[in-house]
Design a protein around this nucleic acid. Sequence first.
DNA 1: CTTGTATTGAAAATGATTTTCAATTACAAT
DNA 2: ATTGTAATTGAAAATCATTTTCAATACAAG
Lengths: 151, 151
Amino acid sequence: MTPTITVSRWLDLLQSAGCRVTAPRRAIVELMVGTSRALGPIEVFDLGRAEHPGLGLVTVYRTLEKLEELGLIERVHLPDGCHRYLRTADGHQHLLLCTTCGLVQTFAGDDLDPLTGKVASDTGFAINEHWLQFFGTCPDCRKPISTLSES
Amino acid sequence: MTPTITVSRWLDLLQSAGCRVTAPRRAIVELMVGTSRALGPIEVFDLGRAEHPGLGLVTVYRTLEKLEELGLIERVHLPDGCHRYLRTADGHQHLLLCTTCGLVQTFAGDDLDPLTGKVASDTGFAINEHWLQFFGTCPDCRKPISTLSES
DNA sequence: CTTGTATTGAAAATGATTTTCAATTACAAT
DNA sequence: ATTGTAATTGAAAATCATTTTCAATACAAG
């Protein structure tokens, strides 16, 4: 699906959920659909103002919250304690994140269901979520600044 | 190693690092050594005041930071975005956390080194950290309140 | 085009964490 | 034991992220 079609789909889903389609929301949706980086609220705010200069930070928070409710984006947590938002991948994916620029790649990891079941029965916990995430530095961020390609 | 000996060892390590051993620090160290729950700063503050009533929240933050620097405790992140501190386990362990009370269990998961190497060479990332964590509800927190045992 | 209501952005409020600072205290050197 | 000094303390203020409040605005249904 092309980015343009995905943007329309997200806006339709917003409308189906009883929300209005407004310029600020459109700007934020375009951003989140178009990027392959995990973005924090301030980044969305800064990038969004390029599209829609009047955009307010409060609207960013509210829109991200709504997109998360709809399952279109999800929070990812980083080692430093910050969290950012990321377009939800199809199916449950394991994540590889660049801690410098936020670039995200997904990878097909091991199937954790058997391990989850074993740990649950060993411990008596009811397990309802897991994280398998790798963190590192992406190829671009590993390069010296002089040779950096545009993102 | 008994908890008492571990407390002494932590205090010795603090001193070796050029820090002074004070009553507030002793209270916080005893807490972190003695619990099997991941505790947030406010929890440490509240529990610590039982031991040392004058304890200030600022001191809690500073002491936890120092213990983390020394590698004696580590931050764990939770799905809701909060983070708590946990006595560092021997070797790298995978964690199972109760999202209700913070109880932590470690489990021997799959060895992720081969997968890490594969993902690194597939993507060109330099991978330097990973999380494999399960979240759920521990046996005690699953029980109705009337039958709760003391922790 | 009019109208009702969801949405907006600014400002204020909140909550977590950090910084500043004067008073205190551990502890090394007498 | 006493003392000097630098590390440490807790309170208050500052900072930063996030949420709430609210009056003005703008979407979309009729």
